[in-house]
Design a protein around this nucleic acid. Structure first.
Lengths: 234, 234
DNA sequence: CGCGGAATTGATTTGCGTCAACACACGTGG
DNA sequence: CCACGTGTGTTGACGCAAATCAATTCCGCG
């Protein structure tokens, strides 16, 4: 860097990689250019190692977030200390955006699952922005809507299907719904997938084992599917 | 009615009870007067007996709804025919509003749980209205947000707690969180409550039975709670 | 009074969580 | 290069919570 660089130029250079990632995210892509510029300018960027916690359930909420790289796990902790995962957010995904409509405390805890860099936005600030710019409020509304649908799916699956069925479902959702054979690389650790599906890690293991009879082979993070159609019928 | 009454006056009189209920609903209360007037004018009112189905999962979506009276059950049906309840909507509640953001098919089935009168709105029409009137889009956004929070709660409870705990939770949510004793009238049939909590009706029965040890008495739809504080600790 | 749907109770089964032991891969330091 | 520790995934044994099936009982309503 040059010595004579101004503060503004410095800010533009610093985190330029993050800024680009953020600019490319679905959220920023669906708002007006002005709003996007404002969001990029006010965003704070952080990179955190796995297992670090972003916030705890019940904590006073100041920001909401967009994952740029890595994964973040949202979960709730029961009275006995057990945790239930509600969502795992990957690159481009936004979380805690419900709070824009009034809640003042986080309703889940959030911790980094795999080393992640994250953009954070001030809630009250974005609230004002949304009042001014309809593209923002409608983008947020669309996010809420899609999160709602996703979690409804998840809940229905939980209640209707057994572990192997849900795992099959998950695999099908991952693979670009061909028929015939397919090969998938799981996006993250199996224990995370287990949590996502509401299973203990052991149960996921067993589910994979039972899918072996249906032409599914697992080695490390690579999953080979013999026949996608067959899997769909489980 | 007078003979000389115009069409417009006639429409105003017909369904006047429904119109009033609709006008008093949280949705209409939180939009601009003009938008409210428009919604009331374009709403269609229906009264349906229990068990009638409003729409089926996968059906092409034309309308979304607001319950004015009675209850509607939203559920999804598994491959084996079993059903999982996702939500039960009572007076004032809106459902299927996700579709305003693009989905073109219903994601659940909906049937009347207890004789219900319902207002329906054209999705594309309201979509246009929301583009024009920010109070509408923000009201819908708020609805989405609160539904999302509710279902997240529900999902976390499912995964973290046992049947008696969830039932206790439900009772506490019903009763105006006093301490000391309380008496509640269940809003609908026990089998509905069971579905809502992700339980078989028999399991709900047993859960009530097991709560007897904690000072909960059930007779018909009336539930007596000995000590609210004690119930909270289960 | 008698009928039918709802709710309860009991017996049995099943899915999955829990605990514990073990296999495996990876990186570290001797 | 090999011994070692750690973190992650697998496998087995066991128990519990709740679904299922079946048999009554309760209650509302014609």
């Amino acid at each position: 860097m040059r010595d004579a660089e101004t503060m503004a130029e410095g800010r533009a250079k610093i985190h330029s990689r993050e800024r680009n990632l953020l600019a490319a995210s679905p959220l920023l892509q669906s708002v007006s250019p002005q709003a996007a510029a404002h969001l990029i300018d006010t965003a704070l960027f952080t990179t955190l190692p796995a297992r670090s916690t972003l916030y705890d359930e019940g904590e006073r909420a100041r920001d909401f977030y967009c994952v740029l790289y890595g994964y973040v796990r949202l979960f709730r902790t029961g009275r006995d200390g057990r945790q239930a995962d509600l969502r795992i957010c990957g690159p481009g995904e936004v979380f805690a955006e419900c709070l824009i409509h009034g809640g003042e405390r986080y309703r889940t805890s959030a911790e980094v699952a795999e080393t992640a860099t994250i953009a954070s936005f001030g809630i009250t600030d974005v609230r004002r922005l949304a009042d001014r710019d309809a593209t923002v409020s409608s983008a947020i509304s669309a996010l809420l809507s899609s999160h709602l649908l996703t979690i409804m799916d998840c809940m229905a699956n939980d209640r209707l299907y057994t572990a192997p069925q849900r795992v099959a479902d998950y695999l099908l959702a991952c693979c670009p719904s061909d028929d015939g054979a397919a090969s998938i690389r799981l996006p993250y650790q199996k224990s995370l997938i287990a949590g996502l599906l509401g299973l203990a890690p052991e149960a996921l293991s067993r589910a994979f084992a039972s899918l072996k009879a249906n032409g599914v082979t697992v080695r490390g993070r690579i999953v080979q599917i013999g026949d996608v159609e067959a899997l769909r019928k489980i």
